[in-house]
């Protein structure tokens, strides 16, 4: 295979891998907004908690796989506490209060991480089975990155099928479309909201622990990733699962291909795309409500 084909396949895999990380992170953000109308800026902080808790668990137990399972559970527990203490009360408080309280949470989590884990960034090895490289489409690519792609696709498929085919999926769709009507139809909307919120938190935690072996963990990682994640959900359509998928691909591919072809102005391009969407099509490319 020619050198340039290898190069482009590798770059496409890079773009796909980054898209999947963005997807795992933004899906919770968008679903929580779609159903609860809640803007959770602290979502990035939950992602960071997932990363750090994952590192500690992997160190304690010696197993990445234990961390992969338990870190999202731990993050969900944190989410439950936040839900009961803060988020439930702010459900109907309007976007300003929500943005401010979750902005405050970003500050709190930033220092909690510094106090518990220190200022120096931490790294984590991928599990032994996923180290090294694997040949795919005629190129050698890091196995762990392929695992991220696989994990992203798996979760994407599970969510799509659940949403389209299952009863709970139908309830969620009804809730996004019109929550009052859904409540009239006998759906326990509050319980549904709580379940979806927990799922969103678990996915943020999962994204954190999955990202660490590649990106490493810093106290500011939650704030760093927040802006790209918000761009993904806004471009796709706030509250829309399909939109988050599309948005992740757009941002992931723009970031990667931009780094190859247009280094320098590539981050401006992404913001410009965001601004254009917000002005001309604020409901996003695939709006949540039909």
């Amino acid at each position: 295979m020619s050198g340039s084909a290898v190069f482009w396949i590798t770059q496409l895999l890079n773009a796909l891998q980054y898209s999947m990380l963005l997807f795992l992170l933004s899906i919770g953000l968008t679903v929580i907004f779609g159903l609860l109308h809640f803007v959770n800026l602290a979502h990035g902080a939950l992602y960071a908690m997932g990363a750090y808790i994952g590192i500690s668990l992997a160190l304690r137990t010696g197993s990445y796989w234990v961390a992969l399972v338990l870190a999202p559970v731990a993050v969900t527990l944190i989410g439950v506490v936040l839900y009961l203490l803060l988020i439930r009360r702010l459900r109907h408080a309007g976007p300003l209060s929500q943005v401010l309280v979750t902005f405050g949470l970003i500050f709190v989590f930033l220092d909690v991480i510094r106090i518990l884990w220190g200022d120096i960034a931490l790294g984590m090895d991928p599990p032994a089975a996923l180290r090294g490289m694997t040949s795919i489409f005629g190129v050698r690519y890091p196995t762990y990155r392929l695992f991220i792609i696989g994990m992203g696709i798996l979760i994407m498929v599970v969510l799509l099928v659940t949403l389209a085919r299952s009863q709970i999926g139908a309830m969620i769709r009804a809730g996004v479309e019109n929550d009052q009507m859904a409540a009239c139809l006998g759906i326990n909307v509050e319980r549904l909201f709580f379940a979806v919120f927990c799922l969103g938190c678990a996915l943020a935690g999962l994204a954190g622990v999955v990202a660490v072996p590649v990106l490493s963990a810093t106290p500011g990682m939650g704030t760093d990733i927040l802006i790209p994640a918000l761009i993904v959900v806004v471009i796709g359509g706030l509250g829309s699962l399909h939109g988050a998928i599309l948005g992740s691909f757009i941002v992931g591919f723009m970031a990667t291909i931009g780094a190859v072809l247009l280094p320098g102005i590539n981050s401006v391009l992404i913001f410009a795309a965001l601004a254009a969407i917000l002005v001309f099509r604020p409901q996003g490319l695939i709006p949540a409500r039909g």
Partner: peptide, 9 residues
């Protein structure tokens, strides 16, 4: 955060 594209370059 991801240097993959640059490393590939």
């Amino acid at each position: 955060q991801d240097y993959g594209p640059y490393i590939t370059n």
